[in-house]
Design a binder for these strands. Structure first.
Lengths: 342, 342
DNA sequence: CTGAAAGCGCTTACAG
DNA sequence: CTGAAAGCGCTTACAG
């Protein structure tokens, strides 16, 4: 009984060898960069047989024998986040360039699912992992450790453990955001983030904001952690912030793009126009940032480059498992739009 | 020499068998739903050994033997399109539910890359393919045929060949869009699409629009195929459309979401406010549709459901290769916003 | 330049 | 209830 959907099973190296009147070794050589060792006649027969049978080597068998699957696992915290999509594109193109395929898994913001993916990917013997973690908790660390697979962290890191990682320079970025708002004459700033626990990027952005605040006593600041989705809390938080700072020039800072979308809706709901009634600055550049109202000032990240860099670091690690851990931080770029120029 | 990054290679079924003082068959049974055949004592020893070694079966070996990889390949024309992301989420969640992993490939709108992915995925012996094709040309059909893999088409179909496919009811959707605009009193309609060649969805939307136009002689209509990116052509096309129809109530229809974004920028560039100076209707619902100007009226697709349905049809096909081809069309939903209520 | 044979880590009849 | 052995489709020493 055949397992393939069509009646014929896929041809194997054996079939090709038979048809080409050659040994299996020669077929294998043909596909493994050793074609030059073959005589022209043999090579011609092999090529004909491959053509005729439409043969493709079975990667599963290949991986099993060779020990490497030429697969890179990419675990994404939330594929709905445009940030992640751009990262994915960078990872995929760079992987392909080096002969690897990417297996993308969307953890849907669930650490549990993320751990499951780690195990699944290990099962398929991916050569390495690139992880934009949904959250670095103990379960996650446990799972990661259990795989013994080389990995690179993206955007988020593990506290107190040197790891390969690529991300944004959150300290610099938050400083830049803060400075820009102060320069624009804002006097009261409301920093809103999703829960920072288990998430180093959010922590760094928040901490950096807090430090700046302490250095600028004349600026009023508020910090709020809000777990999404929670539109009503978002709305009431902003409303309260506004009523607490009447008469002052106020601005909101959204710690990431997903939040920015929600905040934009909240502001709309409250009838507050960014760039007129209130300032608004967003981490992550959104494709619609110029279209909404007067435009939304953003901290832009070189997302695709971050994906590429992650692959590059992973390949270093694959080539040399003892390679020193690398931490590559990219600078954020401030894109000024109407929302912060009252 | 070890291939793993850490010094220890992964434990195999052999190691577990040795440690549990059992045969490999029993270990295999334990992992294949035949644990009930094992005596409690044997089972206990096996579990202990698995724990101790942190053993996970090698899926590559499993696939090789079993003939099925439990992998579904998903080829996406353009992952930057939010439509695709939603589809991906549907496909992934439904696949997982049935014990399959999804291997996502982003063709980046390149038919060439798409063909390459088809071959690569075949190499890894995925059990089936879900394809949101970048374009159905001869190369694509050739590649698809060569794989002999079961497949389901998403959003786009192959002319003249019955295939499993899921997509939008484009005829109905375009009619609904047309009717809505006419009902709102628009007199001149400008339908803009990316090139329709090799793309059934675009063809259907365009054709349906054209048919409606013929049934409504009092409505002026224009149709434009524009290959992206081409901001200047977009701008000049719209400008010309407007000057050709002075004094009439005008509206633009964007054939998909990617185009809508570009058109929104073009309108902004021209200083035309949708919902005031001109009407604007978009196929595909965009997350920011309510935030931009007065909001953008959209034809919304049940994208995640489409992904799930695709998996479901593929599984039917896997269970019974002779299963009758299914074509599942979803109804579009009109979401009215400010852009079409002048 | 070429090929036979062993073996990668599993599963599945088959035998007990 | 349990396990030895063959074999999935490859690659890699090894031998000629």
């Amino acid at each position: 009984m055949s397992h393939s959907s069509k009646s014929k099973r896929s041809p194997t190296i054996r079939d090709v060898a038979a048809k080409a009147n050659a040994g299996r070794t020669s077929i294998s050589r043909y596909f493994n960069g050793e074609a030059h060792l073959l005589s022209d006649k043999l090579k011609a027969r092999i090529e004909a047989a491959i053509q005729e049978l439409n043969y493709r080597p079975n990667q599963m068998a290949r991986s099993l024998k060779h020990g490497s699957s030429q697969l890179i696992g990419l675990i994404i915290a939330d594929i709905s986040n445009p940030f992640s999509v751009e990262v994915l594109k960078g990872v995929e193109s760079e992987s392909m360039k080096h002969g690897f395929m990417t297996v993308v898994c969307n953890a849907n913001n669930s650490i549990k699912l993320e751990c499951e993916f780690i195990h699944l990917l290990k099962g398929y013997r991916v050569d390495g992992l690139i992880i934009n973690s949904a959250g670095v908790n103990d379960d996650f660390l446990q799972a990661l450790k259990a795989t013994t697979l080389p990995f690179v962290l993206l955007d988020r890191k593990i506290p107190n453990i040197p790891c390969d990682m690529v991300g944004l320079d959150n300290i610099q970025s938050a400083q830049m955001a803060f400075k820009h708002l102060v320069d624009q004459g804002f006097e009261a700033l409301c920093f809103i983030t999703e829960p920072i626990q288990y998430n180093s990027a959010r922590q760094e952005r928040l901490n950096s904001f807090q430090s700046e605040l302490q250095l600028s006593p004349h600026i009023k600041g508020e910090i709020h952690e809000i777990e999404l989705p929670n539109d009503s809390l978002l709305i009431s938080t902003i409303a309260t912030f506004c009523s607490n700072h009447r008469g002052m020039r106020k601005a909101i800072i959204a710690a990431n793009g997903v939040l920015s979308l929600k905040i934009a809706y909240a502001l709309k709901h409250l009838g507050l126009a960014w760039g007129a009634d209130i300032g608004f600055l967003s981490f992550d550049n959104l494709e619609w940032a110029e279209l909404a109202g007067k435009g939304i000032t953003s901290i832009s990240q070189p997302t695709a480059d971050m994906g590429k860099m992650a692959v590059s670091i992973l390949l270093d690690k694959l080539a040399d498992p003892k390679h020193q851990e690398q931490e590559h931080l990219f600078q954020g770029e401030l894109v000024v739009r109407g929302s912060t120029t009252l």
